[in-house]
Design a protein around this nucleic acid. Structure first.
Length: 231
DNA sequence: CCAGACGTTGTT
DNA sequence: GTCTGG
DNA sequence: CCAGACGTTGTT
DNA sequence: GTCTGG
Protein backbone atom coordinates (compact mmCIF):
# COMPACT_ATOMS: atom_id res chain seq x y z
CA UNK A 1 0.00 0.00 0.00
CA UNK A 2 1.06 3.51 -0.62
CA UNK A 3 3.55 2.53 -3.28
CA UNK A 4 2.92 5.55 -5.51
CA UNK A 5 1.93 9.14 -4.79
CA UNK A 6 1.82 12.66 -6.18
CA UNK A 7 3.23 16.07 -5.36
CA UNK A 8 1.94 18.66 -7.82
CA UNK A 9 1.43 21.57 -5.41
CA UNK A 10 3.45 24.71 -6.20
CA UNK A 11 6.68 25.15 -4.24
CA UNK A 12 5.40 28.38 -2.64
CA UNK A 13 2.32 26.63 -1.24
CA UNK A 14 4.47 23.98 0.43
CA UNK A 15 6.79 26.66 1.79
CA UNK A 16 3.80 28.52 3.25
CA UNK A 17 2.71 25.37 5.12
CA UNK A 18 5.99 25.58 7.02
CA UNK A 19 6.12 29.33 7.65
CA UNK A 20 8.24 30.16 4.64
CA UNK A 21 10.69 27.27 4.99
CA UNK A 22 13.13 27.14 2.09
CA UNK A 23 12.02 24.33 -0.25
CA UNK A 24 14.02 22.88 -3.17
CA UNK A 25 12.34 23.92 -6.42
CA UNK A 26 9.60 21.41 -7.26
CA UNK A 27 8.36 20.20 -10.61
CA UNK A 28 4.85 18.72 -10.54
CA UNK A 29 4.99 14.95 -9.97
CA UNK A 30 2.03 12.71 -10.79
CA UNK A 31 3.66 9.30 -10.37
CA UNK A 32 6.30 9.22 -7.65
CA UNK A 33 7.77 5.70 -7.43
CA UNK A 34 9.98 3.82 -4.95
CA UNK A 35 13.73 4.62 -5.28
CA UNK A 36 13.00 8.14 -6.52
CA UNK A 37 13.77 11.32 -4.53
CA UNK A 38 10.83 12.54 -2.44
CA UNK A 39 10.41 15.86 -0.66
CA UNK A 40 10.72 15.53 3.11
CA UNK A 41 10.81 17.90 6.06
CA UNK A 42 12.93 16.99 9.09
CA UNK A 43 14.65 18.64 12.00
CA UNK A 44 18.24 19.57 11.28
CA UNK A 45 21.10 19.03 13.70
CA UNK A 46 20.56 22.55 15.02
CA UNK A 47 16.85 21.94 15.61
CA UNK A 48 15.47 23.97 12.71
CA UNK A 49 13.13 22.43 10.17
CA UNK A 50 14.76 21.70 6.82
CA UNK A 51 13.33 20.44 3.53
CA UNK A 52 15.36 17.82 1.69
CA UNK A 53 14.97 15.27 -1.05
CA UNK A 54 15.42 11.72 0.25
CA UNK A 55 15.48 8.48 -1.72
CA UNK A 56 12.23 6.57 -1.13
CA UNK A 57 12.93 3.12 0.36
CA UNK A 58 14.70 3.08 3.70
CA UNK A 59 18.14 1.45 3.76
CA UNK A 60 19.22 0.55 7.33
CA UNK A 61 22.69 1.91 8.10
CA UNK A 62 23.98 -1.65 8.55
CA UNK A 63 22.64 -2.89 5.22
CA UNK A 64 25.14 -4.24 2.72
CA UNK A 65 23.23 -3.25 -0.38
CA UNK A 66 21.19 -0.27 -1.48
CA UNK A 67 18.56 -2.45 -3.12
CA UNK A 68 17.24 -3.54 0.29
CA UNK A 69 15.47 -0.21 0.34
CA UNK A 70 13.13 -1.24 -2.44
CA UNK A 71 11.22 -3.46 -0.04
CA UNK A 72 11.22 -0.94 2.82
CA UNK A 73 9.07 1.76 1.26
CA UNK A 74 6.53 1.35 4.10
CA UNK A 75 6.86 0.60 7.81
CA UNK A 76 4.02 -0.64 10.01
CA UNK A 77 3.33 1.98 12.68
CA UNK A 78 2.34 -0.76 15.14
CA UNK A 79 5.80 -2.35 15.08
CA UNK A 80 8.30 0.13 13.64
CA UNK A 81 9.72 1.08 17.03
CA UNK A 82 10.95 -2.48 17.63
CA UNK A 83 11.98 -3.64 14.16
CA UNK A 84 15.75 -3.75 13.61
CA UNK A 85 15.40 -1.87 10.33
CA UNK A 86 13.36 1.00 11.73
CA UNK A 87 13.78 1.33 15.51
CA UNK A 88 16.81 3.62 15.45
CA UNK A 89 15.14 5.95 12.97
CA UNK A 90 11.91 5.86 14.97
CA UNK A 91 13.71 7.24 18.03
CA UNK A 92 15.55 10.12 16.44
CA UNK A 93 15.10 10.33 12.68
CA UNK A 94 11.44 11.01 12.06
CA UNK A 95 10.37 13.10 9.09
CA UNK A 96 7.38 14.23 7.04
CA UNK A 97 6.91 13.10 3.46
CA UNK A 98 5.06 15.74 1.45
CA UNK A 99 2.22 14.53 -0.79
CA UNK A 100 -1.08 15.70 -2.21
CA UNK A 101 -2.47 12.32 -3.18
CA UNK A 102 -1.61 8.64 -3.38
CA UNK A 103 -2.63 5.60 -5.41
CA UNK A 104 -4.08 2.29 -4.31
CA UNK A 105 -4.76 -0.75 -6.50
CA UNK A 106 -7.87 -2.85 -5.99
CA UNK A 107 -8.15 -6.36 -7.37
CA UNK A 108 -11.31 -6.41 -9.51
CA UNK A 109 -11.68 -9.86 -11.00
CA UNK A 110 -8.40 -10.53 -12.74
CA UNK A 111 -7.63 -6.86 -13.19
CA UNK A 112 -5.97 -4.45 -10.83
CA UNK A 113 -7.67 -1.10 -10.94
CA UNK A 114 -5.73 1.94 -9.71
CA UNK A 115 -7.56 4.51 -7.55
CA UNK A 116 -6.39 7.98 -6.61
CA UNK A 117 -6.89 9.30 -3.08
CA UNK A 118 -6.59 13.04 -2.44
CA UNK A 119 -8.16 15.89 -0.49
CA UNK A 120 -11.38 17.37 -1.82
CA UNK A 121 -9.74 20.78 -1.59
CA UNK A 122 -6.59 19.42 -3.30
CA UNK A 123 -4.39 20.75 -0.50
CA UNK A 124 -1.15 18.91 0.27
CA UNK A 125 -0.67 16.89 3.44
CA UNK A 126 2.12 15.41 5.53
CA UNK A 127 2.76 11.68 5.74
CA UNK A 128 4.60 10.33 8.78
CA UNK A 129 8.03 9.07 7.75
CA UNK A 130 11.39 7.86 9.02
CA UNK A 131 14.77 8.55 7.47
CA UNK A 132 18.18 6.93 7.58
CA UNK A 133 21.68 7.53 6.27
CA UNK A 134 23.55 4.75 4.52
CA UNK A 135 27.09 4.42 3.22
CA UNK A 136 28.22 1.73 0.79
CA UNK A 137 31.19 0.21 2.63
CA UNK A 138 32.05 -1.99 -0.34
CA UNK A 139 33.04 1.11 -2.29
CA UNK A 140 35.82 3.08 -0.56
CA UNK A 141 35.18 6.82 -0.08
CA UNK A 142 31.62 6.63 -1.37
CA UNK A 143 29.17 9.31 -0.30
CA UNK A 144 26.33 8.57 2.08
CA UNK A 145 22.79 8.25 0.77
CA UNK A 146 19.79 9.45 2.76
CA UNK A 147 16.63 7.36 2.45
CA UNK A 148 13.14 7.36 3.90
CA UNK A 149 10.02 5.24 4.45
CA UNK A 150 6.32 6.00 4.95
CA UNK A 151 4.46 4.69 8.01
CA UNK A 152 1.20 2.82 7.55
CA UNK A 153 -1.83 2.22 9.76
CA UNK A 154 -5.29 0.68 9.50
CA UNK A 155 -7.46 1.88 6.63
CA UNK A 156 -10.30 4.26 7.44
CA UNK A 157 -13.84 3.58 6.23
CA UNK A 158 -13.23 5.43 2.96
CA UNK A 159 -10.19 3.33 2.10
CA UNK A 160 -11.42 -0.01 3.41
CA UNK A 161 -13.14 -1.03 0.14
CA UNK A 162 -9.74 -0.74 -1.54
CA UNK A 163 -7.32 -1.88 1.10
CA UNK A 164 -6.89 -2.68 4.78
CA UNK A 165 -3.97 -0.26 5.25
CA UNK A 166 -3.30 3.39 4.53
CA UNK A 167 -0.42 5.83 5.05
CA UNK A 168 -0.37 7.85 8.25
CA UNK A 169 -1.47 11.43 7.54
CA UNK A 170 -0.44 13.80 10.33
CA UNK A 171 -2.57 16.83 11.25
CA UNK A 172 -0.76 20.18 11.60
CA UNK A 173 -1.19 20.06 15.36
CA UNK A 174 1.11 17.04 15.62
CA UNK A 175 3.87 17.96 13.17
CA UNK A 176 6.21 19.55 15.70
CA UNK A 177 6.14 16.64 18.13
CA UNK A 178 6.68 14.12 15.34
CA UNK A 179 9.69 16.08 14.05
CA UNK A 180 11.29 16.64 17.47
CA UNK A 181 14.44 14.53 17.27
CA UNK A 182 15.07 15.02 21.00
CA UNK A 183 11.72 13.50 21.94
CA UNK A 184 11.89 9.71 22.04
CA UNK A 185 9.03 8.52 24.22
CA UNK A 186 7.53 5.70 22.20
CA UNK A 187 3.95 5.78 23.44
CA UNK A 188 3.14 9.46 22.84
CA UNK A 189 4.65 9.14 19.37
CA UNK A 190 2.69 6.00 18.56
CA UNK A 191 -0.55 7.75 19.55
CA UNK A 192 -0.04 10.05 16.55
CA UNK A 193 0.02 7.13 14.12
CA UNK A 194 -3.68 6.60 13.58
CA UNK A 195 -6.03 6.51 10.58
CA UNK A 196 -7.15 9.84 9.12
CA UNK A 197 -10.82 9.93 10.06
CA UNK A 198 -12.05 13.28 8.82
CA UNK A 199 -14.24 13.30 5.71
CA UNK A 200 -12.12 15.59 3.56
CA UNK A 201 -10.63 12.88 1.32
CA UNK A 202 -12.00 11.66 -2.00
CA UNK A 203 -11.29 8.46 -3.94
CA UNK A 204 -11.84 7.79 -7.64
CA UNK A 205 -10.59 5.30 -10.24
CA UNK A 206 -7.93 6.40 -12.71
CA UNK A 207 -6.48 5.12 -15.97
CA UNK A 208 -3.96 2.26 -15.85
CA UNK A 209 -1.33 4.50 -17.40
CA UNK A 210 -0.20 5.21 -13.84
CA UNK A 211 0.98 1.60 -13.69
CA UNK A 212 4.10 2.43 -15.71
CA UNK A 213 6.57 4.44 -13.64
CA UNK A 214 7.69 6.24 -16.81
CA UNK A 215 4.25 7.85 -17.15
CA UNK A 216 4.32 11.01 -15.06
CA UNK A 217 1.70 13.44 -16.29
CA UNK A 218 -1.60 15.00 -15.21
CA UNK A 219 -3.40 12.17 -17.03
CA UNK A 220 -2.42 9.90 -14.13
CA UNK A 221 -4.90 11.62 -11.83
CA UNK A 222 -7.69 12.19 -14.37
CA UNK A 223 -10.85 10.35 -13.30
CA UNK A 224 -11.22 7.23 -15.43
CA UNK A 225 -13.18 8.13 -18.55
CA UNK A 226 -16.88 7.33 -18.57
CA UNK A 227 -16.95 6.58 -14.88
CA UNK A 228 -17.90 9.09 -12.24
CA UNK A 229 -16.45 8.90 -8.75
CA UNK A 230 -17.75 5.86 -6.91
CA UNK A 231 -17.18 7.40 -3.51
C1' DC B 1 30.61 -19.07 20.37
C1' DC B 2 29.45 -17.80 15.15
C1' DA B 3 25.95 -17.34 11.36
C1' DG B 4 22.25 -15.26 9.60
C1' DA B 5 18.49 -12.28 9.63
C1' DC B 6 16.88 -7.79 9.89
C1' DG B 7 10.76 -5.54 5.87
C1' DT B 8 6.11 -4.72 3.66
C1' DT B 9 2.67 -5.83 0.47
C1' DG B 10 -0.43 -9.12 -1.52
C1' DT B 11 -1.54 -13.63 -2.61
C1' DT B 12 -1.98 -18.55 -1.67
C1' DG C 1 24.34 -2.62 14.84
C1' DT C 2 21.79 -6.16 17.38
C1' DC C 3 19.04 -10.06 18.08
C1' DT C 4 17.85 -14.97 17.33
C1' DG C 5 18.91 -19.66 16.23
C1' DG C 6 21.98 -23.43 16.27
C1' DC D 1 3.22 0.03 -6.13
C1' DC D 2 3.73 -2.23 -11.17
C1' DA D 3 6.69 -3.53 -15.22
C1' DG D 4 10.13 -6.05 -16.97
C1' DA D 5 13.84 -9.07 -16.75
C1' DC D 6 15.41 -13.46 -15.81
C1' DG D 7 22.34 -15.67 -19.19
C1' DT D 8 27.06 -16.56 -20.91
C1' DT D 9 30.62 -16.31 -24.17
C1' DG D 10 33.46 -13.87 -27.21
C1' DT D 11 34.09 -10.18 -30.19
C1' DT D 12 33.63 -5.26 -31.62
C1' DG E 1 8.12 -17.67 -9.72
C1' DT E 2 11.09 -14.03 -8.05
C1' DC E 3 14.04 -10.26 -8.22
C1' DT E 4 15.34 -5.63 -9.85
C1' DG E 5 14.41 -1.00 -11.50
C1' DG E 6 11.74 3.09 -11.55
Amino acid sequence: MCGRFTLRTPTETIAAMFDGLRIPQLTPRYNICPTQPVLCVRQSRTGENEAVNLRWGLVPFWAKELKIGASLINARSETAETKPSFRAAFKSRRCLVLADGFYEWKLEGKQKQPYYVSRRDDQPFCLAGLWESWTDKSVPSSNSIETCTILTTDANSLMLPLHDRMPVILPKLHLDLWLDKDFSEIEPLKKLLVPWVTDDLRVYPVDKSVNKPVNDSPSCIEPMSGNASLF
